[in-house]
């Protein structure tokens, strides 16, 4: 059984089909990139997978459970336990230090554990930045805090919506290296991107257009660069 399976998913806003009959399955440990022009439905799909939105039609099976039928409260619980989110704008809490931002996710999940949070920061190479406020960190550093926060509760899937959209090349590479590392540790990654360079390092690339899957390809170059 796949970790994630979308069956006949549609999301309709008025007479706009943001997603139109999407069928897709993602295996455990897979690294998938989702591409497509602006407005093609990428974020909509991520929101549905990330339990922040529900499809108008279809089933979303996560670990065999149809999350499209769950109540908002249960969705919050599923998101808390199974999903790690990485955002284009990082969304760090501006009055909390780096380590506290990681601990926020622990706090709302179970119990904050500063030692574990510091380890997570060390893993993304920010051990010496733990006590800095977001405003004292560079964009790349902020995104790494965001990644540490997404990882802290050991989610089953990491969802990243344009994670490198606000980063320069050097920081983009740092983030991609982290993704590689996560992939080697068998973390399931779904990364939305505009950027072909970000997409081509993934195992598989799905391209959306007008809410439909235009292509779904295995990246033959995967692992060689």
């Amino acid at each position: 059984m796949s970790l994630l399976e979308l069956r006949g998913i549609s999301k309709i806003y008025g007479d706009l089909k943001a997603l139109d009959n999407i069928n897709l399955s993602v295996e455990n440990g897979e690294w998938t990139a989702i591409m497509g022009p602006s407005g093609s439905g990428k974020s909509t799909m991520m929101n549905i997978i990330g339990c922040m939105d529900k499809p108008t039609m279809g089933e979303v099976l996560l670990d065999g459970v149809d999350i499209a039928k769950e109540s908002a409260k249960n969705l919050t619980a599923i998101r808390r336990d199974k999903i790690g989110l990485i955002f284009q704008q990082f969304h760090l809490v501006n009055y909390l230090t780096a380590v506290e931002n990681v601990m926020v996710a622990q706090y709302y999940h179970s119990l904050p554990d500063e030692k574990e949070a510091l380890e997570a920061l060390a893993r993304v190479g920010l051990a010496d930045r733990a006590k800095h406020l977001p405003s004292q960190l560079s964009g790349g550093e902020q995104q790494r805090v965001c990644i540490a926060r997404a990882l802290i509760n050991h989610p089953e899937i990491i969802l990243a919506d344009e994670p490198t959209g606000n980063l320069d090349e050097a920081n983009e590479n740092i983030v991609l290296d982290l993704f590689r590392q996560l992939h080697e540790e068998h973390t399931t990654l779904i990364v939305v991107t505009h950027d072909p360079e970000v997409a081509e390092v993934a195992q598989r690339t799905i391209t959306l257009e007008h809410g439909r899957i235009k292509s779904d390809e295995i990246n033959k170059m995967f692992g060689r660069n």
């Binding site: 922040m52 409260k73 919050t76 969304h91 926020v104 709302y108």
Partner: peptide, 16 residues
């Protein structure tokens, strides 16, 4: 609102 959205996204309950 960003901060609140984030808390919700990392799984904070409404009550919290």
């Amino acid at each position: 609102s960003n901060e609140i959205g984030l808390f919700k996204a990392v799984g904070a309950r409404d009550g919290a």
